[in-house]
């Protein structure tokens, strides 16, 4: 990797971001970018590296979000303490739902994940313990520092950055290990991978478990910051869509693709929301949809692919 200085510079810039501005909107934007980068990087493990395009990752996001708040409302736990529980629940769900689903390839897999996520959303929307259609609220006033309820977005920024660094570190390790090559083979095609002796189902499951755990963590972090959850904001199809589009825009199956996608998309989304007000969400998703279509049509590799072709061309010109 010759681009290490660039990567280091990028992370220094991200770390310094909240110190460069006093504007709460911009500080909050930084935290939201990192959160989106976490969940998209988590999706990337199964959707990008293993090439299994899940459009139902809201199930795992919801597992984390709901675990955090239901343990608060029922047992009075601080929301962040529910995160490990959520991760376990998400991994259990991944094992139960994923194992049979993995025999499906391509489109079938995507359709199954959409159906599973819709199923979860409807069930939760009718489940009293989980607040049904109304949802759940976190602690209205912080009881202690452990509730991680801050007025300023800055502490969240560093919390999310820490999680993202851990996740990307793990992903990098994975990418260089045997698993990275196995997943690349699976991405290229199930049958070919199997004929090369890759234990396809097992490695798909490993990737999904890791992916589910971190997506769930992102859900917990989301409620720690926002303090409220309902079936649409935790389990709606748009939650899954956002992970897919952030990763695909940046470059799915690349280490930094999801982060790049988040840096482009989240400010766009927050700006349209701010400009169009309440009706902004609709406009945001028109833009999202259009971006997805354009990526699919012209650059399936995303920004990372664009970057690669530019650097290759520059290298060729230099030579």
């Amino acid at each position: 990797m010759k681009q290490w200085p660039l990567v280091l510079l990028g992370f220094v810039a991200i770390a310094a971001w909240p110190l460069l501005t006093d504007d709460v909107f911009l500080q909050r934007l930084g935290a939201l970018v990192l959160l989106a980068a976490i969940s998209a990087s988590a999706w990337n493990l199964i959707g990008g590296y293993a090439g299994q395009v899940s459009i139902g990752h809201s199930v795992y996001f919801g597992a984390g979000a709901y675990a955090s708040l239901v343990l608060y409302t029922q047992l009075g736990w601080p929301p962040i303490a529910g995160a490990p529980v959520g991760m376990l629940v998400a991994m259990a769900l991944a094992a139960v739902v994923g194992t049979p689903t993995f025999r499906l390839r391509g489109h079938y897999f995507s359709m199954a994940t959409i159906a599973a996520a819709e199923l979860a959303r409807i069930l939760v929307a009718n489940w009293k313990l989980l607040g049904a259609a109304v949802g759940l609220m976190g602690p209205p006033v912080p009881r202690s520092v452990v509730d991680l309820s801050f007025i300023s977005p800055v502490p969240y920024h560093y919390l999310f950055l820490a999680v993202l660094v851990v996740l990307l570190g793990l992903t990098w390790q994975m990418q260089r290990s045997r698993m990275g090559y196995y997943l690349a083979a699976i991405r290229g095609g199930d049958r070919a991978a199997r004929s090369l002796g890759v234990p396809v189902l097992r490695y798909k499951l490993y990737a999904l478990l890791l992916s589910a755990a971190f997506t769930s963590l992102a859900g917990s972090l989301y409620v720690v910051m926002v303090g409220f959850i309902d079936p649409d904001s935790a389990l709606g199809i748009l939650i899954s869509v956002k992970m897919v589009i952030v990763a695909a825009l940046g470059g799915s199956g690349t280490l930094f693709g999801p982060l790049i996608g988040a840096i482009i998309l989240v400010p766009l989304e927050e700006t349209t929301n701010a400009v169009f007000g309440g009706s902004g969400t609709g406009v945001t998703y028109i833009v999202y949809g259009a971006i997805i279509v354009l990526i699919a049509r012209f650059r399936p590799g995303g920004v990372a692919d664009l970057w690669r072709s530019i650097t290759v061309r520059m290298a060729r010109r230099a030579a």
């Binding site: 959707g47 090439g51 395009v53 459009i55 391509g106 489109h107 995507s110 897919v244 589009i245 695909a248 799915s252 997805i292 279509v293 990526i295 699919a296 049509r297 399936p300």
Partner: peptide, 8 residues
Amino acid sequence: PMLAQILG
């Protein structure tokens, strides 16, 4: 690729 087919 598959991703493009689905996302399109």
